[in-house]
Design a protein around this nucleic acid. Structure first.
Length: 571
RNA sequence: CGGAGUGUAGCUCAGUCUGGUAGAGCACUGCCUUCGGGAGGCAGGGGUCGAAGGUUCGAAUCCUUUCACUCCGACCA
């Protein structure tokens, strides 16, 4: 490709609304342009990268035995009503009506469509196992799109769906996909980890996320420093504290805390550690019998909303009660709540394992401006209605597998695989006849990869002050040719044209910068775009029959012959 | 959805408080010089100041409404 006939679309300045480095560089390198919130056009260079990622994904999916199909992006409401997700999926679902006032949605995922397809197509166990996939545009109406293509509303996704007769088959299909995903992210040249994950609104029983490690990632990952254990913090289990609960010491005491409403303030005021305080959160419950539920944590711990939403009786999505409701039921402001006598007021107390293990703690007195200290479960306050793991793990916690301690790191979720079981096949009555002649409900798995998100994630992991540094596998071009004084030197022109023709004939993607630009401009653009190999063609080195090679990744420069160039590029 | 903010040239932004001929840098076009790391000079082109309504002799500027975008929070594959 010659730059004189190609819209490079590079920018010298960073657009004001690009916050993280990958978004800034994708704009500056001319990969994307924004159309609206969460909507991006892929420019020629960006599309090249996207297609390279998609190609690797397809190759590995095919190798794992999956078959490519393409389903509609617009889906009839009836299917979503069958699975109950028309309402459950919530406002993320972009709904629309056609001219006949029939309801449709733009697909955020395709479990319903593929299940419907397969209940029509599959009749016999002999047709199993089957795994179909597609690479397609999805739309999720995110509350807050951000970070460019990283959390866009419209995005490109590879989604695969496996169908098996039983759980053993489903497990095998899952394992195959786990391996395929590992191959894909390895080939793409990304630093990643598979992590145990929550299943979220897709549902199902068991799942892994594939996380690209990056400090700008939105997800927190917990991993053991002494074993293979790795899990999303949403799921990572906090262990039961060791030993017996300490025996109560001093007598309970009411203390004035006129303006101290946060754990930090109360702890500082009473000269105790936050871990000696008890934090009481009031959340909305389902049903009339218990409209409110108290969640109790150690002062230095954070509530894990995913875990909390799994508690029976807790409303989904998790919702903190407003100040007025709290005042009406408990009689104080949110900053002074404690677990005492809540059960008696019809508010069950669910304590975190660590909170339930505390003794002589500080907590709110359910009275404005007052806290209690030296409070003890049982002696001063009814034992919690229920004890559960409802907190986020913290650095240093014992690993759930018993080996080592947990550390935390950040990641970008680029893949997610689920064992769905019969969640959709049962709701939508997708069965085949088994060997015995009886209908068997299909066991499903689903497997997603955020193709467009991978592009952003790769840049987060691979860039420097000059621009993007693509892993070879997804670079838009393999090599950039930068001629010096192309338009004045016949020698340079001839050498560059020949080299361009020969490298192109080798099947390489070559970007030939034949613009009438100064060298500095061309160097800067090629580095910004992140092309792995750069060859400068100038009279200076041509005099010795050499070209100047520079590696974008290592920064290494050397003068080389044409055949050495070919060797370098063929690796 | 709650809170905050921004909309002026392709991009980054000044001008708005205090109403009076729409600006700068970069980008773009032409010419000249320069020619191995985002050059310099000269001359140009480019605007319904987000939109609608109002106040006023006069509105980018004041008022009302509205739309879009961004950030923080909540939420979330």
């Amino acid at each position: 490709m010659r730059t004189s006939c190609y819209p490079l679309a590079t920018l010298k300045e960073t657009p004001a609304d690009a916050e993280i480095v990958s978004h800034q560089l994708m704009m500056r390198a001319g990969l994307i342009r924004k159309l609206g919130s969460g909507l991006y056009t892929w420019m020629p260079t960006g599309l090249r990268v996207l297609n390279k990622v998609a190609r690797i994904v397809r190759e590995e999916m095919n190798k794992a035995g999956a078959i490519e199909i393409l389903m509609p992006s617009v889906q009839p409401a009836e299917l979503w009503q069958e699975s109950n997700r028309w309402d459950e999926y919530g406002p993320h679902l972009l709904k629309m009506k056609d001219r006949h006032e029939r309801d449709f949605c733009y697909g955020p995922t395709h479990e319903e469509v593929v299940t419907d397809l397969m209940r029509r197509e599959l009749h016999s166990y002999k047709q199993l196992p089957l795994n179909v996939y597609q690479v397609q545009t999805k739309f999720r109406d995110e509350v807050r799109p951000r970070f460019g293509v990283m959390r866009a509303r419209e995005f490109l996704m590879k989604d695969a769906y496996s169908f098996d007769l039983d759980e053993i088959g489903m497990q095998k299909a899952y394992d195959k996909m786990f391996q395929a995903y590992t191959n894909i992210f390895t080939r793409l040249g990304l630093k990643f980890r598979p992590v145990l994950a929550d299943t979220g609104s897709i549902g199902g029983s068991y799942s892994h996320e594939f996380q690209v490690l990056a400090d700008s990632g939105e997800d927190l990952i917990a991993y053991s420093d002494d074993s293979d254990y790795t899990a999303n913090i949403e799921l990572a289990e906090a262990q039961v504290p060791q030993g017996r609960r300490p025996t109560p010491g001093k007598v309970k005491e009411l203390v004035d805390t006129p303006t101290q409403t946060s754990i930090a303030d109360v702890a500082a005021f009473l000269k105790v550690e936050p871990k000696q305080c008890l934090k009481t959160l009031i959340v909305v419950g389902v049903g009339k019998e218990c409209p409110l539920i108290a969640l109790v944590l150690r002062g230095d711990h954070e509530l894990n909303t995913v875990k909390a939403e799994k508690l029976p009786g807790v409303a989904i999505p998790l919702q903190l009660a407003d100040a007025e409701t709290i005042k009406r039921h408990i009689g104080c402001e949110p900053g002074f709540i404690g677990p005492l006598n809540l059960d008696g007021r019809g508010i069950p107390v669910i304590a975190d394992r660590d909170a339930a293990h505390m003794a002589d703690f500080v907590c709110g007195a359910n009275e404005n401006g007052k806290h209690l200290r030296h409070v003890n479960w049982q002696r001063d306050c009814a034992e919690p209605t229920r004890v559960a793991d409802i907190r986020n793990v913290v650095v240093g916690d014992i690993s759930p597998d018993g080996q080592g301690h947990l550390q935390l790191t950040r990641g970008i979720e680029v893949g997610h695989i689920f064992q769905l079981g019969d969640k959709y096949s049962k709701a939508m009555n997708a069965t085949v006849l088994g060997e015995s002649g009886q209908p068997v409900t299909l066991q499903m798995g689903c497997y997603g990869i955020g193709v467009s998100r991978i592009v952003g994630a790769a840049i987060e992991q691979n860039h420097d002050e000059y621009g993007i540094i693509w892993p070879d596998a997804m670079a838009p071009f393999d090599v950039a040719l930068v001629p010096i004084n192309l338009h004045r030197s016949d020698l340079v022109k001839k050498a560059t044209e020949e080299l361009y023709a020969e490298l192109t004939a080798m099947g390489l993607d070559v970007l030939y910068d034949d613009r009438q630009e100064r060298p500095g401009v061309m160097f800067a653009d090629m580095e910004l775009i992140g092309i792995p190999h750069r060859i400068v063609i100038g009279e200076r080195s041509l005099a010795e029959g050499k070209f100047e090679y520079k590696n974008r990744h290592t920064g290494e420069t050397k003068n080389v012959t044409k055949s050495e160039i070919k060797d370098l590029l063929q690796q």
